[in-house]
Design a protein around this nucleic acid. Structure first.
Lengths: 215, 215
DNA sequence: TAGATTGTTAATCGATTAACAATC
DNA sequence: TAGATTGTTAATCGATTAACAATC
């Protein structure tokens, strides 16, 4: 029975992986790293690093530190990044296409295998080498890509319907770019990236700075 | 002396604004709303709603609820959304262009006034009606757009330099899409959206589901 | 052995939520 | 007045961090 890892910890694992990747560029460059140094690279507290890493197992050596290559490997295992992971993008509009071509995905071991769109003018074509499929091919697509991640890049008003369709086809990991609250069964992991919300939060702080000039 | 509002609360204000906007579609449709109902629409706890809203001031009436139109207006004031707010996008690549055309920004009162790029082939042109400027026009651009938000959509390796340049020109609110830890003076608000990180977090949960099948 | 650093416990902190007095 | 619902206090919860025993 595995302990469950706090979501806040999970969200920091990619930061540690990035730091480890920077430390491990060649052969025997920096063999070990302390929690202190790793914390500095990831921009967090050293105690937090040790606590987070202890959830993954005991990969450090007291008095020495963490073996960079080993920890990096284990981190990849924990994050399920040992092979290539398939990504399917719902919505082949501007955002969908930008995401499909985002090099940051490929660099991190993700492969966009298909886009799905309702537009008959797009279906059947290849956009930057990525095939565009019709919605009625979703079942087949999901069956062929076990453990894939579905990215929702459709207009807001159809997002819930699209999610329902993908969940029915077996999707269980969703990254949603459409604004608004989506509902999905609790065993389906949904992460939301709301670009408008991010701007509104920044607008709040911008307004605050303006406000404090006078009064 | 204003109380400072917790960041977690600030991040929820846009959710409340969205809910209020749904409730307020015409004249006298739903005049008031209870914290209970608002909580349901925003997908949070009712006590949290009341606590969050109390930071903005006392806009409710005991026994009655919140006046939808009034609260919506005050929310817009708090979020600095009473006028149009300028957005400047650094990087006119695929992601930058997708963001520049993202309708969700315009719908929420943001206006992309310019993109900035180093590519001489793009500088001076209009991409979807948005002018592309050269880096040496940044000072002028920032001076002309007080309280603007700068979006970093450049490659990772130049992001820090771009941030430094914009901060020197007076930018104080940054939405960063480049992976990695950016440094900026503490008075500059930086929010990070790391698309690769989001996928890695989902990959973690996907791996977990696979793992629990066997073993 | 002495110095360094992990892994973990215990203390601290902040955010969430329940409860309720205030009051419409 | 009775019922409803806010605004706020106090209790709870979980996450962060300091501290230190274990141990290389």
């Amino acid at each position: 029975m595995r302990r469950s890892i706090p979501e806040a910890t999970v969200a920091r694992l990619p930061l540690y992986l990035r730091a480890l990747t920077e430390l491990d560029p060649g052969v025997g460059f920096e063999a070990t790293v302390s929690s202190e140094r790793l914390a500095e690279l990831a921009g967090v507290n050293a105690a937090k690093v040790r606590k987070d890493l202890s959830y993954l197992g005991s990969y450090g050596t007291r008095g020495v530190g963490y073996d960079v290559a080993l920890l990096r490997f284990q981190m990849n295992v924990s994050l399920g990044l040992t092979g290539e992971r398939a990504v399917i993008i719902a919505g082949a509009g501007r955002l969908g296409q930008a995401l499909a071509n985002y090099v940051g995905f490929r660099e991190r071991g993700f492969r966009v295998v298909a886009m799905v769109d309702v537009d008959p003018a797009k279906v059947g074509s290849n956009l930057s080498g990525i095939p565009v499929l019709a919605p009625d091919e979703v079942d087949q697509l999901l069956a062929a890509n076990d453990g894939c991640i579905v990215v929702i890049a459709t207009p807001e008003d159809v997002a819930q319907g699209v999610v329902d369709r993908f969940v029915a086809a077996g999707a269980s990991n969703i990254l949603n770019f459409a604004p608004g609250v989506l509902s999905a069964p609790s065993e389906v992991m949904v992460r939301n990236v709301d670009l408008g919300l991010e701007l509104q939060v920044l607008s709040f702080y911008a307004a605050r700075k303006e406000g404090s000039v006078d009064s």
